[in-house]
Design a protein around this nucleic acid. Structure first.
Lengths: 165, 165
DNA sequence: CTGCAATACTTGCATTTGTAAGCTATGTAA
DNA sequence: TTACATAGCTTACAAATGCAAGTATTGCAG
């Protein structure tokens, strides 16, 4: 996942003092995104820990709660995961008792992934957490700004989708 | 760094087909940020490779090009790196011949980090790359939208700084 | 000046990651 | 029907990462 995501949980947290002359990195789009990504990751990690779910499993759990019984490749597609990563992700999901691999009646080389009862119960707990963390992060933004950032991010991450509106 | 950053360079790139029913993750702030972070990381990786710099070294190189001769802890502070990460980062920077550790006249337990001539030359090549990648990513946005996203991201990542304006 | 905490930085070790190569199954073109 | 590419998934191995514990230096209270 994001590199250096552990920066929140380290023994000594390093806090930057506010300076008047802003270094270029603070106005750099890339730096801002990376910083934000790590903030999010750290917060999610902390919240998910409370219900015994790792960030690693979280995204796959979300996908499966929306589309149960799809094959592994599709799970990876939804999340832009490389194949090897999805493979290990599902392994972990199965090992945690959240999901099961069922043989695909259509093809002997694919498995269909189904959430277990336990997995579904966990998945049901996720949306409130996502909402809570988002709100925390976005706390200083107005409603308009929240709309703006979502729209803009959609445009940037999938131009064709955004154009459809 | 960001997890799964390698998704661009894998053998078979998995492209999601556009669907009409948008799953919740596509409107999720967290998912959008993570996706964007990985896009950025992959693009930077590719561009930096051309001049023989890794993403890992890139950020530290940027910091040092703005503030030469600071100690290791400060480099880490600027980038929100954990200490162990900064330590190994500077190691790599030194090993690559980009920087040198000089004894701090004020304290025997700190080193001051200086870019070498070679390091400075590399650092000088970075800003155009940053600009190019940013522009590529933001290509579908209007000038207004670009301003908006930067402002909003600053507000989110450092609320106190943003409030100063 | 002594002891104890904090600072600055490093490192051993277990886990996680990325890459490339692998395996089996399916599709397809001759 | 056989060969050869592709799809779906896995895995060995090397490198990178994160945590906890380490060293050495400095500051500071008594």
């Amino acid at each position: 996942m994001l590199a250096y995501a552990g920066f929140i949980s380290q023994r000594r947290i390093l806090v930057r003092k506010v300076s008047k002359t802003r270094p270029s990195r603070e106005t750099s789009f890339g730096f801002l995104i990376q910083t934000l990504a790590r903030m999010l990751d750290a917060k999610m990690k902390a919240e998910l820990k409370k219900i015994g779910v790792s960030v690693k499993l979280f995204t796959a759990l979300m996908v499966l709660s929306e589309e149960d019984g799809i094959n592994q490749r599709k799970v990876g597609e939804r999340l832009n995961f490389p194949e090897y990563f999805t493979s290990r992700n599902i392994d972990a999901l199965v090992e945690a008792g959240f999901a099961e691999r069922q043989p695909d009646p259509e093809s002997r080389r694919t498995y269909l992934i189904y959430l277990t009862i336990f997995g579904k119960a966990k998945a049901a707990q996720l949306p409130p957490i996502v909402k809570r963390v988002s709100n925390e992060i976005l706390t200083n933004l107005s409603d308009l700004e929240r709309q703006q950032i979502i729209t803009i991010l959609q445009k940037v991450t999938s131009p064709n989708l955004a154009a459809e509106e």
